[in-house]
Amino acid sequence: MMQWRVLLQKEWRDHVRNLKILWIPIVFVLYGIMQPVMFYYMEDIMKAVGNMPEGVDMGITDMTSADVMASTVGQFHLIVALIVILSFMGVISKERKNRTAALLYVRPISFSAYYLSKLSGATIVALLSTVLGLLASFYYTMILYDEMDVWKCAALIGTYSLWVLFVVTVTLTASAVFSTGVAGTLAFLLTYFMQLIDSIIGQFWTVSPWKLGTYAITWLVAEPDSSDFWLSVVVTVIAILLLVIIGIWGTRKNVENIKI
């Protein structure tokens, strides 16, 4: 526990020094508020750009807040996983390469404390950014459109946080087991590619971690099928725990790959 705390402090300082704690929330908030504002002024923008035939109704004017929020979260979905993977894929593997790990491993630290400190550091940054971005998005949608149920927003943020946690864990585990390039590719495959597969042939099953994004959006209009939803949550949590175990095993196994 003591080791974990000290290593987490190191991790925190690292995130502060390379400004991750600043730019990731800013980017998420920007992407969160841009979409509602753009939808709100779409008509004006279209008029200003011109070249629209007479009497065209794009159906944008009569959007409800739920529609706007759903499309915002859909956009968010692409950006979040991309930035999380790209900024955290080297967290463990780069330390092996640039000799920081050699400095750490000569001391008697436990591998689980090391891996878990990395995971918690990355999770704090990623979750903080996601929640801030979604809250900003809700705020703008409520100002520009109509009110929304607070509990629905909370459910959406909660479900979405679990998905972000899953992405972070996948990235860090890949980083613990493989080198940076392989880790990034693998994390992409496991999030984007699997999501694609899930959306193409996913109607045959209803329970999978990759459906969490869809379930999160469903919270806005109605409750998702409760048994499917909770089963997905349970499956995701189990997957995260498994990935943590694999990650700790990977950091231990890769001791011989450390550059001195």
């Binding site: 400004l19 600043l22 730019w23 800013i26 980017v27 908030v29 920007l30 508020i33 841009m34 504002v37 709100y40 002024y41 004006d44 520009l144």
Partner: peptide, 23 residues
């Protein structure tokens, strides 16, 4: 009102740019 709505976006974008440049 359009300006008031767009102002936060512009300001945040500006902060991001300044942070990147200082770094």
């Amino acid at each position: 009102s359009l300006l008031m709505m767009l102002l936060p976006i512009i300001i945040i974008q500006f902060i991001l740019m300044i942070v990147a440049l200082i770094d």
